[in-house]
Write a protein that binds this DNA or RNA. Structure first.
Lengths: 121, 121
DNA sequence: CTGAATCCTTTAGGATACTG
DNA sequence: CAGTATCCTAAAGGATTCAG
């Protein structure tokens, strides 16, 4: 077995597992993609731009992305409050990889759906 | 808002969400990476090559990957039974995208860990 | 050896109400 | 407007037992 797999096997040391544990949730990728297109968005704009995310989950998702240093949160001391979100450099550097995955998904989604249907899924 | 985002917003039509709903679980990526290195493996070999996966979850994971047409399952009619798994062409075509994501994770894991620590995570 | 079936715990996520 | 706090449900995943 290669050295690479020695790393993958340990959930605590494995970079991709450490990262995907966060990004593999229901909303993170979507938030990153949206911020990648729109540059800067307010909390409310983000929520409206996603069909069905709850306010709680948007908050949780943004906090996690922020703590990973992928998203930056800027608070304007105004009333009513105003908070703007944008990708950090690290977040931007992740973007092309998500896009390439997204392209693969778009290309293969029909085949995948056919496979699932055939198997009763 | 761009057309791309119109697609992302709908969880049912969005390819990347449809795909990541499956692949974003705890074990799928790891199985794909391992099969990408080892070509063909038996059920037991796969389980041993992962530190802590339960037998049930390995079965579930492999069934989902199979139903997505990413993994092929070959049964040898022997006693005791023998089942070999390998990536399909579709699975192989996904591999480089996961690797590029994995490379990004490896490069950024230290910074991410520092960010998390700083934020109390 | 490769599972399937069952039960149980943990976690993710949603709904609602409230606040500066 | 941008959250927090609380409660609740659903889904993921683990442990155990059994079977061909």
């Amino acid at each position: 077995m290669g050295k690479i797999l020695e790393i993958y096997r340990s959930s605590e040391n494995c970079p991709i597992r450490t990262v995907l544990d966060r990004i593999g949730d229901k909303w993170s990728i979507l938030v990153i993609l949206i911020l990648g297109e729109e540059e800067t968005m307010r909390f409310n704009e983000l929520q409206k731009s996603m069909n069905d995310i709850s306010q709680k989950m948007l908050t949780v998702t943004l906090r996690k992305l922020e703590s990973d240093g992928l998203v930056h949160r800027r608070i304007f001391p105004e009333i009513p409050p105003r908070v703007e979100y944008n990708l950090t450099e690290r977040g931007i550097s992740l973007l092309p990889h998500i896009h390439s995955l997204s392209d693969w998904a778009t290309k293969n989604i029909d085949g995948i759906r056919r496979s699932r249907a055939k198997s009763g899924n």
